Simulated assay, not measured.
Amino acid sequence: MKEFINYMADPIRSFPIMTILYILMMKYYRIIGTKKFAIGAVVASLPVVAWFCMDANFRAIILWPDNIPINIIIILIAWLTWYSLYRCAQNDARIEKGECPIEATPENREKVWTWPNLVYTELMCMIGATVFLVVWAIIFKAPLEEPANPTWAPNPAKAPWYFLGLQEMLVYFDPWMAGVVLPGIIVVGLMAIPYIDTNPKGNGYFTIKERPLAMWMFMYGWLVLWIYLIIVGTFLRGPNWTFYGPFEYWDFHKVVSEYNVNLSEFLWIKWLNMPMPGNIVLREILGIILTVAYIVVIPLWSAKTKWGKKIIENTGQIRYYIFIFLLLGMTSLPIKMVLRWLFSLKYIIALPEWELNL
């Protein structure tokens, strides 16, 4: 069983599973967003987590001082995600009956004074957070290491937890793409969703039915393309940034043979059985054509579909093309990940002469 879990935890299999689970979660949110489901999930997960913790390798990973706050964050994200689905299910059911959302009921619209209501609550939260941090500091040792030594680098060398998603992207993209362009597109895209999707409904209350586009995109970018990558980088990447299963010992001598090939090498050497052309544009012509088609042709084609026409009708052409550009930028990450896993594809366009690799 442990070997099977290690096998399924590999990103080539766990990422599609995560995507499928996300689709099921959003599609059946009215079932998942119930107290019965939450209680059943907690009861079912407790013995599974206890069984996981019986393994020494798994315990060593989750109890690593750097990883303890990430464990807490994951639990909080799971709770808050369920709670948002719970509130969405309640409001959508009320709206279908012709009632107002819970947030719009008279008792919830009642205003209170900042003092003492808000300030008192904030004071209690500050005291509770301080007590928690003091107890945490007493129980767990601070993950401090020796002073930096230029002759020795830790293995694995990991960024802070909030940058581990970016570090995982470096496996699939060039540094300028993984460290600047994609994070910018993801962050800006998530912030731009409320301004692109100008649907006035859903402002100030929980709902999925009245804001499906915004909710589906935001939650996928947040849970699958960010939180999942942080979990992989934290718990499943060991020495040499090699993948290790949750029950696998982090052996520094583990060797994984990987040979990544550029798309141009596939075209000229493997498919056409010809030497690589000296002209760099001709050499990368297939990747250039595919990239232009992805960036230019797909938006123009989708604008003529029923789905695209509906979005243009609701938002306008400018907002539509901004939206589709951000969407294509976001989906380029899972596309490149899948291409790497299935075909060992390194770059679609490899132009080291221009320091441009996609």
Rank of each mutant, 00 (worst) to 15 (best):
M1R: 12
Y7F: 15
D10V: 10
R13K: 13
F15Y: 13
P16E: 09
I17M: 14
K27W: 14
G33S: 07
A38M: 14
I39T: 11
V42W: 12
L46Q: 02
F52A: 14
M54W: 11
M54T: 13
D55F: 12
A56M: 07
L63F: 15
L63R: 09
L63Q: 09
N67C: 03
I70A: 07
I74W: 05
I75D: 00
I77G: 00
L80Y: 07
W82A: 01
L85K: 03
Y86L: 03
R87I: 00
Q90F: 03
N91I: 06
I95C: 00
W115M: 10
P116T: 06
P116G: 03
M124T: 10
C125N: 13
I127W: 08
W136I: 07
I139C: 05
K141L: 11
E145A: 12
A148E: 09
N149V: 07
Y162K: 06
L170F: 08
Y172R: 05
A178S: 13
V187M: 08
G189N: 06
M191I: 13
A192T: 10
K201Q: 14
N203K: 15
G204M: 13
T207V: 04
L213T: 13
M217T: 08
L223H: 03
L229T: 04
L229S: 04
I230G: 03
V232C: 01
V232E: 09
G233H: 03
W241P: 00
V255N: 05
V256E: 15
N260F: 12
N260V: 10
L263T: 03
F266H: 09
F266P: 00
P275T: 11
V281W: 15
V281G: 01
V281H: 06
L282T: 13
L286G: 05
A293V: 07
P299K: 05
S302F: 15
S302E: 14
W307T: 13
K309T: 04
I311E: 02
Y320Q: 04
I322Q: 00
L326A: 06
G329H: 03
T331H: 11
E353C: 04
W354D: 05
